[in-house]
Amino acid sequence: MSQETPLLPERDTREAALFFVVCALCFLAALAALSARATYDAAAGWTAEVQGQITVRLVDADRRAADEARDLIAAVPGVTGARVMAHEEIEALLEPSFGAGGLPAGLPMPLILAVEADPALENLAPDLQRRLTEAGIDSRVDAHETWAGDVRRALGVVRLVALSTVVLLGATAVAVIAFATHAALLARRDIVDVLHLSGATDRFISRLFERRFWVLGLKAGSVGALFALAAVALAMSMASAGSGRSGLLPRLSLDPTDLLILIATPILAALAARIAARITVIRSLKGAF
């Protein structure tokens, strides 16, 4: 009998339910944090792909006018390439809208110039538009960057929602632990009273509960994080089993940051549990003599 029995009884059936709740909260929080993280990757990937890409749509132009516009654009500093898109290319682009049967015969086919430019150059698109207009060429210049910005803004909203979810789940966990500590304190009133009357300080008593909930937070957080890892792994395998073209979906992967999130989850849960327990116990004891 070298090991001292803990002053708070080890096994407590009430804690099974608490364990489950904290576990679920950690699972959801880890998933939300991973989603927030994935939005950074998605935004970065998208931006890299579209940066420096500009399309120029020519209105009421024939092939000769298109070549003329192309030469004018190619001469602008910062432009690394400009070409008239082939008919088939445009049809392929429009296929999702009009189907594989090709465009209706009577539809006028727009002429489109694909322009490649130095990604570092800002405000190139307005500059091109001005030059084309000055040259009397009726055109519409679209920097892909512009709507990449829309995508980025949308991803920013997703990220904000995900981060808010993490914060909300964290606050919920703290509230749940505080509630559970209060219940445990009431359930163990007999023990707490005897310790108190034996001269135990508030810190001594609170440490018993802190240790208990610290361990619970650590265990439940680890299980929750493991489930989150499993969920991401499952989603990844399902995504790669599909077409492989995930479109706007955030790229799912596990990099060091994700692992950090998964490792931090149980530690933060344990810390939150400990602080909640401490505040609850100290506050409750202060009310007594």
């Binding site: 108190h196 009357l197 034996s198 001269g199 135990a200 300080t201 508030d202 004891l285 202060k286 003599f289």
Partner: peptide, 11 residues
């Protein structure tokens, strides 16, 4: 409160 705890240890 701490002084009270110390006093209780003498009882």
């Amino acid at each position: 409160r701490n002084a009270l705890s110390n006093m209780r240890r003498r009882i």
